[in-house]
């Protein structure tokens, strides 16, 4: 629960009064809240934790963590689960 994924900020927008961003994690784009990294700009990288950017890091740092992340994902997949411990099949129908 305390690991975090680094991703690149592709777009910044307001949603219900919160600073949000589209974050690209090695090709997969997801939304994250950027209220805790108020100074972040498009093109910068942030460590995202449970849907929130918690720190700004430089690109090389991000590349390094990508690899660590991929290894973790692969490892979890070998056991038939995703990174949060959800069985891969079940997590598909549970996530709405």
């Amino acid at each position: 629960m305390c690991l975090g994924i680094p991703g690149k900020v592709e777009k910044i927008f307001d949603e219900n009064g919160l600073k949000m961003g589209n974050i690209n994690y090695s090709g997969t784009i997801n939304k994250a809240c950027l209220e805790y990294v108020p100074e972040i700009k498009v093109g910068q990288y942030t460590v995202v934790h449970a849907g929130f950017g918690i720190s700004i890091i430089d690109e090389e740092e991000a590349m390094k963590s990508y690899e660590a992340w991929e290894v973790l994902v692969e490892f979890a997949a070998k056991d038939g689960v995703d990174l949060y411990g959800n069985p891969l099949e079940e997590s598909k129908d549970l996530i709405k």
Partner: peptide
Amino acid sequence: FGDMLRVPGSNKDLFQVKSEGGDVRIVYS
């Protein structure tokens, strides 16, 4: 968060509640 669903309580876990008809959903944020 998904990790909590299989944590054993005294008698069951959240997956079991879901299979018994409870509306339990995993979210990432």
